[in-house]
């Protein structure tokens, strides 16, 4: 969708809904929201809905970064400890690599 052809209230509507949907454990929707509406929020001449759009873009960005940090921490911890956690690690795995401890 080309945002330049969308009316301003529709932009706000979209941005708000992307932000809300992100709460359903969908951090990538927040990431998309933050990138997609970044120009609208910060680089376009001021218009009425821009303030709200800016708010949602910032919050989406914060939300997705928190998710990113959490995921990165968990993945690192898990990958480093998978072998030593033994049975527990096997039970929370969906795919077990062959030939590695």
């Amino acid at each position: 969708m080309d945002l330049s052809k969308v009316p301003n209230e529709k932009k706000l509507y979209l941005c708000r809904w992307y932000f809300r949907v992100g709460f359903a454990l969908l951090p990538f929707v927040w990431t998309v929201n933050a990138i997609w509406f970044f120009n609208e929020a910060f680089r376009k001449p001021e218009y009425e809905e821009q303030k709200n759009i800016k708010k949602y873009v910032i919050m989406s960005a914060i939300g997705s970064s928190i998710w990113f940090v959490l995921l990165a921490t968990w993945i690192t911890t898990f990958q480093l400890n998978r072998a030593s956690w033994g049975e527990f690690a096997d039970h929370i795995s969906f795919i077990i690599p062959v030939g590695t401890p």
């Binding site: 795995s93 969906f94 077990i96 030939g99 401890p101």
Partner: peptide, 23 residues
Amino acid sequence: SFMYATTNTPTCRRRSDLVTNLN
């Protein structure tokens, strides 16, 4: 001569029987 199993028998038997394993 790539061998699939590692560590010890309990580990490889447990891994062969996992229900949650997608593969």
